[in-house]
């Protein structure tokens, strides 16, 4: 089986993230950049299948700036076999529709049984790119899987509904996305880190994909405003009366 995992470089959610107030785009220099945690989980789904099924090949694909190579290397050190990096200066600030069009064009050049992605990135949060890709490629898609069972010709799993969950399945090839329930990602080990340096990464430009610019509707940022940061209020150390003081505070605020 050949599995392609889609990965994305994002600002570390563990630190403060900033938007550029004039463009509304992410201020890329304000934060550390890492592989999105949800992508590590998606990759884990692929790697777990590879561990159990010899002959499985796992490829990671990313669209991102030049330094997103670091994200690919991380994935290779976890155990992916090779990487594909769509890097083009004109892709800065792409919206979800255009990102999906570019990724779909790159996937079209590949053989695969399964494309696996995260259900939503921590910086975009749209949760639409994997499904847009499936629509473009004419493939069945299952988004937001909480668990994944992969077999030779099919994929099955559970996903949440408003009132519980459902079991869903599809023949392969298919596109799936996973939630943070789906898998706990492994840590790269020393051997993985060493061999990752030798694994191949193919770089693609937009013109190599036969694309130039987005054709359809685009989402456009009109304005960006920063809200004042929240500040700390009263802090007391419990001396036996804290609960009573809190009850007084809640009553004064008309919350009880």
């Amino acid at each position: 089986m050949r599995i392609i995992a889609l990965i994305k470089q994002v600002p570390d959610t563990g630190g403060e993230r900033r938007l550029d107030l004039t463009t509304g785009l992410l201020d890329r220099d304000a934060s550390d950049k890492i592989i999105d945690e949800i992508n590590e989980r998606a990759l884990e789904v692929a790697l777990a299948y590879k561990d159990a099924n010899k002959g499985t090949e796992v490829v990671v694909m990313t669209m991102g700036p030049e330094d997103a190579t670091g994200t690919i290397r991380k994935a290779l050190s976890m155990g992916a076999d090779s990487g594909i990096h769509i890097a083009d200066a004109s892709l800065v600030g792409s919206d979800s529709a255009w990102s999906a069009e570019v990724l779909a064009a790159a996937l079209q050049r590949e053989q695969f049984d399964l494309v696996v992605a995260g259900n939503e990135s921590t910086d975009g949060r749209g949760g639409v790119v994997p499904i847009m890709i499936a629509e473009r490629l004419g493939l069945p898609a299952i988004g937001s899987l909480d668990s994944v069972e992969l077999s030779d010709g099919s994929v099955r799993g559970e996903r949440a509904t408003e009132s519980g969950s459902m079991t869903v399945s599809s023949a392969l090839p298919a596109v799936i996305s996973v939630t943070e329930r789906a898998a706990e990602p492994r840590f790269p080990n020393f051997k993985g880190i060493m061999t990752a340096k030798k694994k191949p990464i193919g770089v693609l430009s937009l013109s190599e994909l036969g694309l130039s610019e987005a054709s359809g509707g685009r989402s456009v940022v009109l304005s960006t405003q920063e809200r004042p940061a929240r500040t700390a209020g009263k802090k007391i150390v419990d001396d036996g009366s804290a609960a009573a003081q809190l009850a007084d505070f809640l009553a004064a605020e008309r919350l009880i």
Binding site: S219, L222, S223, Q225, E226
Partner: peptide
């Protein structure tokens, strides 16, 4: 909630 952003769609539905 750190930022409030307004956006629109141009060139399509």
């Amino acid at each position: 909630g750190a930022y409030t952003v307004e956006s629109t769609v141009e060139g399509g539905l």
